[in-house]
Design a protein around this nucleic acid. Structure first.
Lengths: 131, 131
DNA sequence: ATGCGTGCAAACGATTTGCAGAGAA
DNA sequence: TTCTCTGCAAATCGTTTGCACGCAT
């Protein structure tokens, strides 16, 4: 069954780092973050755990440009982010428009299953630093 | 400027084949379709035109898994789609909320660079077929 | 001891780029 | 002629996989 999985340090590192990262991160990002914490892991292993968790639907995945971004899935506090492309800082966004999605979907005869919204930009500090 | 572009047969082939393809197609698909019509073109050239048109926002691009899909699209009905998870059918979404992104970003001191919005669901037909 | 999990490097598929030659202006 | 566009092949990039070894069970 699905329960013959082993509990390992790497498993934990990937999951924890993904939790710490607020918002979407790429596999490479995550790998870098883990090393930044002084811990070690192979890039391939990061991918393997990321894919495994995605298969089990424990995390969210979106495809952007030529890479995939992963995010710890927290169904309850489902909200969106405004992410700084320079420093990675993320700001939570209020979900007032949440209903709009279901509305639009329904208007086109669709049954809504999931949606993803991420906004990227450059925060005031980074903008000031680069000039 | 933008007007020192030359008009070539390849340019036309890419654009026309994209028009003929109903829905989203990958660069490789398009390349194959062009050959299927007895015409010829280099794969790199297909990519170059696809990217050029995408930059000019003459076509739509969505990232799925590890590849990008392109589709002919009128400049007015800008971005964002409602995608059926079963059959892949994509419906355009009106952009009335477009301004909301820049607004929210600005309110947090961010300079907007790009945003990702994906809405997935099951279309009426697929919903009916699966029951 | 048994076999899943890991690291490394090679393999891969999609996309990009360098460069010399072809063709539009 | 001039200078952009094209084709081909090599180069990148993100991701996956083969294989031998280590470690959890």
């Amino acid at each position: 069954m699905a329960e013959d999985r082993r509990r390992t340090a790497q498993q934990e590192r990937v999951k924890q780092s993904l939790d710490e990262a607020d918002g979407f991160v790429s596999a490479g990002d995550l790998h870098r973050r883990i090393f930044a914490k002084g811990e070690s892991i192979g890039l391939a292993t990061v991918y393997r755990h990321l894919n495994a968790m995605a298969d089990r639907e424990e995390i969210d995945v979106i495809a952007v440009d030529n890479e995939r971004l992963f995010r710890a899935c927290a169904p309850e506090d489902h909200h969106h982010h405004l992410v700084c492309e320079r420093c990675g800082k993320a700001v939570d966004l209020p979900p007032p428009e949440e209903a709009w999605f279901a509305d639009v979907a329904g208007r086109h005869g669709f049954t809504l299953t999931r949606h993803v919204l991420e906004i990227f930009g450059v925060c005031a500090e980074c903008a000031a630093a680069s000039r």
